[in-house]
Simulated assay, not measured.
Amino acid sequence: MDNVFQALVLAVIQGLTEFLPVSSSAHLILPSQILGWPDQGQAFDVAVHLGTLLAVVVYFYVDLKRMVVGSWDSVTSRKMNQDMHLALAVGIATVPAVIFGGLFSDFIEDHLRSSFVIACTTVFFGLLLWASDKAGKGELSVEKITWNFAFLIGCAQALALIPGTSRSGITITAALFLGFSRVASARFSMLLSIPIIVAAGSLETVKLAGGHSPVPWDIMALGVVASAVSAFLCIHVFMRLVESIGMLPFVIYRLALGAFLFAFVGLN
């Protein structure tokens, strides 16, 4: 029963934090370090990644369909169109994270998953998010993204491999600094999450297939459903409110979380 409850809580946490600028990796690491919960294992990681992937694909189905159809039309007509341009921008922005992950994932796993590191990155990148929300002009739409802008956002995304940074937070921060609106920054961040989640989920699946541990299908099913539902609701609310509420609530939350973590580190 405890294992099922913990899996449910972690799946909901994954769904709620994957697309908000608050760092899902930090929130998933903390229960084990603060509450002493055991690692749910690779099968559970695959399940929650699949759940969040389903949520973002369903929510942005129309956008994705337009990108696929438009890209095919661009190839057949041998003429660039806006949909193909956006699809290539997503691809370009994905490359730095893939390279950075391949080079430094082991080092990050071994040395940068402590509560102290998470506390530092939570506060620092929270303040950077606040600065970008204040300094950004907020005029550009997603359709205005250039491949140079996409590459810069992708380089920022690579930093999200460090726990506590937040993939959505750092990509939204970069987009805001480049002059994109809050809605456009959030939308591109969501679209950019799809290949990253696919890559992370595929890697975990390969590791799972190469292992010999039994697969807890009931826990996996729970993880998929709980993370998918919570992620979809989170995306829906965030995209509807991001323009009006801005980034300040998330900055305040990150600062409060960072303060709590520094206190936790100091007491242990």
Rank of each mutant, 00 (worst) to 15 (best):
T76Y: 00
I153E: 12
G91N: 06
A158Y: 09
F124D: 03
L159H: 12
A55W: 04
D83C: 02
S115R: 12
Y61R: 14
E139G: 10
F149S: 14
S77V: 01
L152K: 14
E109V: 11
D133A: 08
F124K: 03
L112F: 13
A119Q: 07
V46H: 04
V48N: 04
H111D: 14
F60Y: 15
I92T: 01
F116N: 09
L129K: 06
M84F: 15
H111Y: 14
I92W: 04
K65E: 07
G154V: 02
H49S: 07
V98Q: 09
Q82K: 04
T121M: 12
A97F: 03
F125K: 02
S77P: 00
Q157Y: 04
I118W: 00
V62E: 15
T146V: 10
G91V: 06
S132I: 02
F149L: 01
L86N: 07
A93R: 01
S141M: 13
L112S: 06
L50W: 04
A150S: 10
N81S: 00
V69T: 07
V117T: 14
N81A: 03
Y59V: 05
T76I: 04
M84E: 01
I92F: 01
A47G: 10
V95G: 14
V98I: 14
V75T: 00
T76G: 01
W130H: 09
L128M: 14
F125A: 02
W147N: 04
T52S: 12
K144C: 10
K134F: 13
Y61M: 13
E109Y: 13
T94F: 07
G91C: 13
A135V: 13
P96Y: 02
V68M: 08
C155P: 04
R78Y: 00
V98Y: 07
C120K: 11
L128G: 02
L128S: 05
F60L: 15
S141W: 11
S114N: 06
N148H: 15
